[in-house]
Design a protein around this nucleic acid. Structure first.
Lengths: 205, 205
DNA sequence: GTCTATATTTGGATAGAC
DNA sequence: GTCTATCCAAATATAGAC
């Protein structure tokens, strides 16, 4: 067997640090996670950590970068086309949202975001931008098109977007909270679908 | 002037500690707030703090108690009556919710709740109960009554309750985030009202 | 790149005088 | 109830040998 069958070991210490930190930060928060704990869980001494990162802050920033690296494809090019599919468009988005909610890695990053939201101004601004503004913008466009095509009742497209998104976020927060305590989320597992159903009934013509 | 014109001074040290801690915890979180900072802001030595509280944890618990002491009157006795008022009932609740959102003290407690939500299991459970379950229960009742009286389209009352509450929460979170950075909330100031408008249009018969 | 050793700071908490 | 003094533990970070 060649020496890199599984992992290149040494060269990947940095990756391992990121992975471990990612887990710890998302469970205990920034203040609650000590460099000691990170090092010990990685299996090296604290001093060795500083060969890979300047300080604790830099480790955090490296981890935090991943929070907003969501693989949501929002090609505003084909929004027009997608919007014409009406309910199916909403369903597709809600399903992607659901997948993210239950994806282990995205779940951790979402938890980290919530944990540090009020501790980190930059995180707040990015949250507003990526979680809110961008989605509002996209859905405003979509709902506007639906209105033009008499698929839904007319009104302020941005308002409709706001209503649609807010509930998705709330469901995600609730599920993430329950899962953190290993509480079953069965009652909520179909909430995303139900939301789309209810919402479409509310706006369709 | 008698000696208790303004404040009884000594006897109220405990109250001052609670007030100061309340502010600090809600800004920096539990870990981010040191007993040193609390004592210094109160104007006493750390050791003196321990005459009033056993330890830091006890101070926090004392502060945290206030989080759920919301003065929401939910006399389930007059729910029946209130529900019959339909839209006005939703408006009234939304306005109370709005007041809480902008009330300085409630704002701090809400921020503290969000800050420690993923750090404190008991807080999570209380959040689920007080912020979610109780409201869902009340609104389920109310919407059920409205359905029976053909005021709104029929469906699962709990689902309708969920949709109504989730957006309120989202608005509150967003406003609290903005205000933490002293960002103007003008764009959101009427969001509660708009939500009720949109929502009522969605369900009314 | 990792280790041992150590510097330095900060934080929670107690003892005992007043 | 508050103060001074002090203790102890934990945490971030660096120096220098291997």
């Amino acid at each position: 067997m060649s020496e890199n069958t599984a992992l290149p070991r040494k060269a990947n210490t940095k990756q391992k640090i990121i992975k471990v930190s990612s887990k710890l930060f998302s469970e205990q928060g920034y203040k609650g996670t000590s460099v000691r704990k990170i090092a010990s869980e990685v299996g090296i001494r604290e001093s060795a950590l500083y060969n890979h990162f300047k300080n604790k802050e830099e480790i955090f920033l490296c981890v935090a970068k991943e929070i907003f690296s969501t693989p949501f494809s929002k090609d505003s090019a084909d929004i027009k086309e997608s919007a014409l599919r009406g309910k199916a468009f909403l369903q597709k988005f809600a399903m992607q949202y659901k997948l993210l909610t239950f994806d282990k890695n995205n779940e951790n990053m979402f938890r980290l975001l919530m944990l540090e939201l009020f501790q980190n101004r930059e995180l707040r601004e990015q949250f507003m931008l990526e979680f809110h503004d961008n989605n509002i913008k996209m859905f405003s466009e979509a709902f506007f098109i639906m209105m033009q095509n008499s698929m839904i009742r007319s009104g302020d497209p941005m308002m409709v977007a706001y209503e649609f998104i807010s509930t998705l976020f709330y469901i995600r927060l609730q599920i993430t909270l329950l899962r953190f305590d290993n509480t079953p989320t069965t009652a909520l597992s179909t909430q995303f679908e139900k939301h789309v159903e209810f919402f479409w009934e509310s706006i369709k013509l």
